[in-house]
């Protein structure tokens, strides 16, 4: 039996895959590392652990780049990897150690050292820093899922469907976590922000 292959099929089979954003890991890091680091740092609240998780996220994405089918945005895909790594770390004793270390060492005062406001005046800079700290402290009391959803929604400004993809949970579950998180943050920040009694 003779087998004939169409020229177009041969061409398709032999041509190299086009280079994507995922093929250059340094370019990937330049583009996405700051946003990932912001989200991971706000989630785990430890600089070294955040660095490690973000690096692992980028390396994992690079290694598994063939598996990215473009069903969601690259940012959502990367965020999903980061969320899973945070969950993995949360399950290990290592993370428990870091969490204990954080409870005693990395508090709002340390965070204040990181937050240097670029405000136009010292007063506005101070106010902005205070408000940022209050948000940071308010999120301390949230559960991991509530904190992740809250951060992804209001800090990373992702849509609910994107958060559902990244966290691998139904949209309704995302809404539930979000509403509980808002309720908690509202109770803590709402009474202090701007000196208003709300």
């Amino acid at each position: 039996m003779a087998i004939t292959l169409h020229a177009d099929v041969l061409k398709f089979a032999t041509q190299d895959k086009p280079l994507t954003e995922l093929d250059d890991i340094d370019a990937l890091a330049r583009t996405y590392r700051p946003r990932l680091l912001r989200f991971v740092m706000a989630s785990v609240r430890d600089e070294d652990l955040a660095d490690t998780i973000v690096q692992d996220t980028l390396l994992k994405a690079y290694r598994n780049r063939a598996g990215f089918r473009g069903d969601c945005s690259l940012n959502t895909w990367l965020t999903g990897i980061a969320v899973n790594l945070i969950r993995d770390h949360a399950r290990t004793q290592k993370f428990k150690f870091w969490r204990k270390a954080h409870a005693t060492a990395v508090d709002a005062t340390d965070m204040a050292n990181h937050l240097r406001s670029g405000g136009s005046s010292p007063e506005s800079a101070l106010l902005a820093r205070e408000q940022a700290l209050q948000v940071h402290q308010a999120m301390e009391q949230l559960s991991p899922n509530q904190r992740s959803v809250f951060l992804l929604r209001f800090i990373e400004e992702m849509e609910l469907s994107e958060i559902a993809d990244a966290m691998d949970m139904p949209v309704n579950t995302v809404k539930t976590h979000l509403h509980r998180a808002v309720k908690s943050v509202r109770a803590r920040v709402g009474n202090r922000v701007g000196g208003n009694t709300l």
């Binding site: 700051p34 980028l58 690079y62 937050l115 240097r116 406001s117 408000q131 940022a132 209001f154 922000v193």
Partner: peptide, 27 residues
């Protein structure tokens, strides 16, 4: 007020992350 606080937090954390990312080595 909450929006302003979140905006500040977002901006401050991004500035911190950009500063920290700028000194990271090649992967």
């Amino acid at each position: 007020s909450l929006r302003a606080a979140l905006d500040d937090y977002r901006a401050e954390m991004l500035q911190w992350a950009e500063r920290r990312s700028s000194v990271q080595t090649s992967l």
